[in-house]
Design a binder for these strands. Structure first.
Lengths: 192, 192
DNA sequence: ACCTCAAACGGAATCGCCTCCGTTTACCCG
DNA sequence: CGGGTAAACGGAGGCGATTCCGTTTGAGGT
């Protein structure tokens, strides 16, 4: 009755888990380059497994893309605690934004397939959106607690702003400048 | 100045036109059976042409489906004058409804691909809808002029009603009874 | 009637998707 | 520490899509 997935997932054999991870890893890499459409066989080979193995783990191309997508989101969100440990919140926030740009860039290569997933009834977004919101919320919260970031910021707004930057900017440099701009707006009054 | 397509279409060689027609014909037939997904090669063979010929005329599967769809609509609309010549308007209307049911049945087999066409930006409907409206309008007009059908009927409503019947009924017999019912509603007062 | 040539034809060849099944291997148990 | 077993592996094979190019043919000009 869970709403997200199965609590009864069997422990998966060691080699199986290894291969699955390997596949997602390669898939992220492969899908990140836009324009190139990679064959599943190529991904399997790059991951050092047979095509059959790929298909057992991901019965359809969509399943693989979705896994790759989720994996990227997870990496992004999991990075937050580490960033907060090693730097003051406002610096962590800025660093996280940079990662976000990378993440969105990767997503572009998957866009077509993600569209297909949506068209066929799936919804890869609602879950991941929640996770992202939480991640930003943690950063904002830490900054507010430290007094360096404004406390009245809606994480969703930050997300939207950063998304906008990645979608509209051409190169990294420009994106960096815009992110700096956003950061300025996030700082608590008097901490400029 | 046409808004629908190219006024500069070259006259197409005789054999080419023959083959194209043949292909559409076979495609309609093939797509009309739901569930069966026909290979393009099968269609080509059934039409007695090589696979290359099929691809030259219809570069993608979608192009073929759309052509088949348009062809069906055209057949349906073109039938109206003939029906009106050989029968009083209310009888012609009823006969046309029967044909409409057949047409919708055929469309079901194409539904998936039509969906795909829409998803990729195409719109196979607006044009055909207009043609259908005109066709029904002619039938209604003739009936009104003859005094056997109500004059205040919106063709779009008739279309909607008949569509509803085809979508909800299981067998021909039931559909026939419902169409009779609709016909009754269309008759001019006192002509029951 | 014949010639010419662009248009049209057809199908072999290539490629990716996906299935199926014989082989290998991790893990548990005595 | 073997031994058994179910899980996992891997790739050959079947199938459809799509391209490419050598061959055929309709149609206009002489």
């Amino acid at each position: 009755m869970g709403h997200t997935d199965e609590a009864v997932t069997k422990p998966l054999r060691a080699d199986a888990r290894r291969n699955r991870e390997r596949l997602v890893e390669v898939a992220v890499e492969a899908f990140s380059t836009p324009g190139r459409d990679v064959s599943l066989e190529a991904i399997a080979k790059a991951a050092g497994v047979g095509i059959g193995t790929l298909y057992r783990h991901f019965p359809t191309r969509e399943a693989l893309v979705e896994a790759a997508y989720r994996s990227e989101v997870a990496r992004l969100c999991d990075a937050v605690p580490g960033l907060l440990e090693n730097a003051p919140p406002e610096v962590a926030m800025r660093a996280w934004m940079d990662r976000f740009v990378e993440y969105m860039t990767a997503k572009r290569g998957m866009l077509d397939t993600l569209r297909a997933i949506i068209a066929s009834g799936g919804d890869p977004f609602t879950e991941t959106k929640g996770r992202l919101r939480t991640a930003v919320g943690d950063l904002v919260g830490a900054g507010a607690a430290a007094g360096t970031l404004r406390a009245d910021v809606d994480p969703a707004d930050v997300l939207a702003a950063v998304s906008g930057v990645t979608l509209t900017t051409a190169d990294r440099e420009q994106a960096g400048r815009l992110l700096d701009l956003i950061m300025d707006g996030l700082r608590a009054p008097g901490t400029r």
